[in-house]
Amino acid sequence: MFEARLNNATTLKKILDAIKDLLNEGTFDCSDSGIQLQAMDNSHVSLVSLTLRSDGFDKFRCDRNLSMGMNLGSMAKILKCANNDDTVTIKAQDNADTVTFMFESQNQEKVSDYEMKLMNLDQEHLGIPETDYSCVVRMPAMEFARICRDLAQFSESVVICCTKEGVKFSASGDVGSANVKLAQTFNVDKEEEAIVIEMQEPVVLTFACRYLNAFTKATPLSNQVQLSMSADVPLVVEYRIAELGHIRYYLAPKIED
């Protein structure tokens, strides 16, 4: 028996919004430690890794490890049927071929359940090595989303250059070129407005705007985003989900031919 409850459907809706543009389907691996999903996008350029800890749920029970392959478009249709302040419970029997989403209104007067067929997904699981990154940048998630959106107008790719002084995002194309420089902040009132740079070695890397913009769909989940970079390895874009876990996106850099 598997049962996971969140007192507020908003979080789950936001999580799905953060992954459904990149992934058509995904396997939710459930164990007593929580729920994990790891999947590459269709073109195998990026990887999504979602971790939701069992202690972050309002109720969590998982008697046996369970892998539930879900069509994320179908899951989105179902979650649309939940009000933001509904309690959502995800339930499945052991070895079941369906999963049930139950939504309860705050006053308990409306209870709905939606059963969805599970899929057998033959997805590759990738081992992600522990990496000490040369540069780790923490910045407001809204600011990152804004920069990705703005620079995508000028080029298919953005160059991220990180030094001790700051981080620079650049794009150039037919129209011209664009540069956005962010300096590390000192003495900001609110932690969520801070820009913090931890640098061992400077890095310059090029990434596809299309994917960065897809990652920023997670912005509603977190005030801050963390970018981890080293030469010649994938960028990690991490959004923490308060008290529940995190979503990490890995993006392969563009390389010289």
Partner: peptide, 14 residues
């Protein structure tokens, strides 16, 4: 000229 590499080049298949 830059090309997009695949994420599979960086991680091992479990």
């Amino acid at each position: 000229k830059q090309t997009q590499s695949s994420i599979r080049n960086y991680f091992t298949v479990k």
